[in-house]
Nucleic acid binder design. Structure first.
Ligand SMILES: [Mn+2]
Ligand SMILES: [Mn+2]
Ligand SMILES: [Mn+2]
Ligand SMILES: [Mn+2]
Lengths: 223, 223
DNA sequence: AAAACAATTTTGGGCAAGCAAAGTTAATTG
DNA sequence: CAATTAACTTTGCTTGCCCAAAATTGTTTT
């Protein structure tokens, strides 16, 4: 059994892996993601590599083996199912569940997880719109664009938000930009680096301005 | 914050404390309860005593300070509320929830615990009939007798079972001796050390024989 | 090509928990 | 009382995980 430390490393290696599959994740990035000093990450990765859960190339970086990826996806599945349970059944606010799940993901048994999955009717997405890997370790990929690059003036639906920080999610809540919300992008200003978004908030249409950096965090799906 | 190890020690010191308040809990008993060697218990208790959570008297034993007791009761509250949640909301069998709660009790936040308490309508007892300490750390004491010493031939109700092992609880399940079940004690045989119990199992009355040792595990309340 | 820089690895050390086995103490027994 | 025994404590060692700071390496810059 992998320790909770190792589970956290594997999960972060998965989440922080570079888009280009041939690339390695550097120790600097990993140590930041896990929240330890670079030296600690190096020696931990050495150990995890001895267990054949990652490949490690000194001065290049780290990459999950198939076994390591399965384990990472299992942790991610636990994390996201727990988040959804906390929102749907326990009634916590979606801005607080990430921190909570960060701990719970390491102690929930397979049996309990199966019950949670049943109660939620085998959901495909967590409260932030992140896909929940299947019990078999498969991630159903949804290709969609962001508020930054979707077509203008067409009605779309927010599908996913790429930020787990409680403060940001509370702001998102206030704006009504939650997953499922219908919006359309009115315009983009490349000089000011801002996007103007129309959102239906408690019945009436409202305009909202976001920076490019923030717009990029919102994935949308054309309806 | 107390580590999960310390939380476990405090909880076991509370649960294993001798009935006589003036007595100390010996290191032997404690090390058995926690599942470590006696030497480990001794040095751990020394450390916890430095934190003023217990009093430790070499060669006598250990005893909780008021601060330590509050912490222990908090852990116990988490444990028992979680057990009830797992049974009532998640639909786990009551024989499996103890092991599950043993881990979860250390990672559930105050906020989540408050939600659980609300959803369950501030329950007073867990699935085994054990009292749930209040948020203020008060244990509501119910004085009742056991199947070993209750009056004969009077209808009573099972209130509490003093054994958390899954196998035993599954047997209890089969016999219909769960908390809430109506029973009456027909006779006791002091030579054979057995008790004959009448229990209403799926409509019809059934007779059941238990040893003194097992009878003692069932607390009953006269109805 | 040399110097400077940034990223990474190595070294040395710390803390929390644990075990095994040796040493101590206190109670029990002959 | 002396000897034995059982319970407890001490000692020495291990493992997992972490940090700070020094050393190394690969890449830019000058
Ligand atoms: Mn985690
Ligand atoms: Mn999420
Ligand atoms: Mn526990
Ligand atoms: Mn219980």
């Amino acid at each position: 059994m992998a320790s909770r430390t190792i589970e956290n490393y594997l999960k972060q290696i998965y989440l922080s892996r570079p888009a280009d599959e041939t690339q390695w994740l550097t120790m600097g990035k990993l140590s930041m993601a896990v929240g330890v000093t670079p030296g600690t990450a190096t020696s931990m990765v050495r150990a995890i590599s001895d267990a054949h859960l990652v490949e490690y190339e000194p001065r290049a970086g780290v990459r999950l083996t198939p076994a390591g990826e399965q384990l990472a996806l299992h942790v991610l599945r636990r994390h996201r199912l727990i988040e959804l349970l906390l929102v749907k059944v326990l009634g916590l606010d979606w801005s607080e569940v990430h921190a909570e799940a960060e701990e719970l993901e390491h102690v929930v048994s397979d049996r309990l997880l199966a019950r949670i999955d049943e109660i939620l009717h085998h959901p495909a997405f967590d409260p932030h719109g992140d896909p929940i890997p299947t019990a078999g370790g498969v991630v159903r990929r949804q290709d969609c664009c962001t508020v930054l690059d979707c077509p203008l003036d067409s009605p779309t639906r927010i599908a996913r938000i790429l930020d787990q920080s409680a403060e940001f999610l509370q702001y998102v809540n206030v704006c009504g930009l939650l997953p499922g919300a219908e919006i359309s992008v009115a315009s983009r200003n490349h000089q000011a680096q801002t996007v103007e978004v129309m959102v239906i908030k408690s019945g009436e249409k409202q305009a909202l301005t976001l920076s490019f950096a923030v717009a990029e965090k919102f994935f949308v799906q054309t309806t």
